[in-house]
Amino acid sequence: MNITTNGEAVSINPLTIQEYLVSLGIDPRRVAVELNLEILPKAQYETTQLKDGDALEIVHFVGGGAARA
């Protein structure tokens, strides 16, 4: 299936947000995720299944602001 992550088209197997972040080497506790223009609560990372066409923005928090993952 195809999704967009931080503006880049990506092909992946069906995964949850949590599984996807881990597959990217990202600690889910250290990022904020926007799914289809809505901030996703961290409590939903493990249960939210990505779907074809979804758009994600993954943001790391760094000293003095935030940066895209």
Rank of each mutant, 00 (worst) to 15 (best):
M1L: 06
M1S: 05
M1N: 04
M1G: 06
N2M: 11
N2L: 10
N2Q: 12
I3L: 11
I3C: 08
T4K: 15
T4N: 12
T4W: 14
T5F: 12
T5G: 01
N6I: 07
N6F: 02
N6E: 08
G7T: 03
G7H: 03
E8M: 13
E8F: 13
E8R: 15
A9D: 10
S11I: 14
S11C: 10
I12C: 02
I12H: 06
I12F: 10
N13E: 14
N13Y: 12
P14L: 15
P14F: 14
I17A: 07
I17M: 06
I17S: 01
I17F: 07
E19C: 06
E19Q: 15
E19V: 05
E19A: 13
E19P: 03
Y20H: 10
Y20C: 00
L21S: 05
L21T: 05
L21Q: 03
L21A: 09
V22N: 04
V22F: 04
S23M: 08
L24V: 02
L24C: 13
G25M: 06
G25Q: 03
D27L: 00
P28Y: 01
P28N: 01
R29W: 13
R30Q: 14
V31I: 07
V31K: 01
V31F: 01
A32I: 11
V33P: 04
L35S: 04
L35G: 02
N36V: 02
N36E: 03
L37G: 12
L37M: 15
L37K: 15
L37T: 15
E38I: 02
E38D: 13
I39T: 08
I39M: 11
I39K: 05
I39L: 12
I39Q: 08
I39W: 09
I39Y: 08
I39A: 11
I39F: 11
L40Y: 08
P41V: 05
P41D: 02
P41L: 03
P41T: 03
P41G: 04
P41E: 04
P41H: 08
K42Q: 11
K42I: 11
K42Y: 04
K42E: 07
A43Y: 04
A43R: 02
A43P: 08
Q44M: 12
Q44P: 05
Q44W: 01
T47E: 07
T47A: 09
T47M: 08
T48S: 02
T48V: 02
T48R: 09
Q49P: 00
Q49M: 07
Q49S: 06
L50W: 00
L50C: 00
L50I: 06
D52N: 15
G53F: 10
D54K: 01
D54G: 07
A55Q: 15
A55K: 15
A55L: 14
L56M: 06
L56H: 06
L56F: 09
L56W: 10
L56K: 05
E57K: 03
E57C: 08
E57L: 04
I58C: 14
I58K: 13
I58E: 13
V59L: 10
H60V: 12
F61I: 14
V62P: 04
G63I: 11
G63L: 12
G64M: 09
A66P: 04
A66T: 12
A66F: 03
A67G: 12
A67K: 15
A67N: 14
A69D: 00
A69G: 07
A69R: 03
